[in-house]
Design a protein around this nucleic acid. Structure first.
Lengths: 139, 139
DNA sequence: CTACATGCAAATGCTTTGCAACCTA
DNA sequence: TAGGTTGCAAAGCATTTGCATGTAG
């Protein structure tokens, strides 16, 4: 792990990083807080937020640029896409490779200097899909 | 305009809709509030939010599913992509046609029932791009 | 030791909501 | 005139921040 000279490895930071890496559920700050609290009962939500910022800056994790109300975090810092359940907000990795050529279509057609793109799929997770079907057949 | 029987056309709703359609700037609720206030000084922010909801539900406008902190609205209800300036948050339409086949790649590889996708490009608008270049040459 | 990090609580910023008065159909 | 709509203010919710204390290096 590459820490610059000014950044310290505290117990809080360590546990937060481990928890994010342990899960594939792309948790929001409050979920991370609840998990970490089991090991560090006195940790504060503010500390969780501050460390998530630091870890993102260090490139250890990434903040997902999705459309939902709450920011979500991913222990895998490499660029990849996600699919979100519109019903329960579950977020999975999307099994599709990065579309590196997407931005090429924009060169010359936009006044913007292009940096990148975010792609998010929406759908229904198996649980919510099943519930919806049950409700419909019940009518 | 197709209003269902229960939905009324009030002066407030009318002015809000006109203002959103008049601009191509994809304004957030507070910007719409400021614009509308010039015609209806006594309107409240709450009314703006409520009407934006109603107009979205009616399909007259759309709420953009972008990554930023504030929700933005588009007078064009048809699906299209956008590009956001990472520096000043300016949002333009992206000159690229909807990628209807994108979701095909996911069938059979995800447990989700796919509904759609959101694609947002990021970049620097001309103003911010210029400022950044000036700062760099000044060093 | 020193200056980065934490816990706590208050503050912030966007959005939603309860309610009495108002106005559209 | 019924009930959808408004203005106002308060509440809600995620996130940020100020400050005194704690602690990693």
């Amino acid at each position: 792990m590459e820490f610059d000279k000014k950044t310290r490895m505290t117990r809080q930071r360590q546990v937060i990083l481990e928890e994010i890496r342990r899960t594939n559920k792309h948790p929001a700050a409050d979920e991370i807080y609840e998990r970490v609290r089991k090991q560090l009962p006195r940790i504060s939500l503010g500390t969780v937020y501050r460390n998530l910022d630091v870890l993102c800056e260090l490139g250890e994790i990434q903040r997902l640029e999705l459309s939902g109300a709450m920011k979500r975090y991913d222990g895998n810092p490499k660029k990849h896409y996600h699919i979100r359940c519109v019903c329960c907000d579950r977020v999975d990795d999307a099994p599709i490779a990065p579309l590196n050529k997407l931005e090429d279509d924009l060169y010359g057609t936009t006044v913007f200097e292009i940096i990148g793109h975010n792609l998010e799929f929406t759908g229904l997770c198996p649980q919510c899909s099943r519930q919806r079907n049950q409700r419909q057949t019940a009518r």
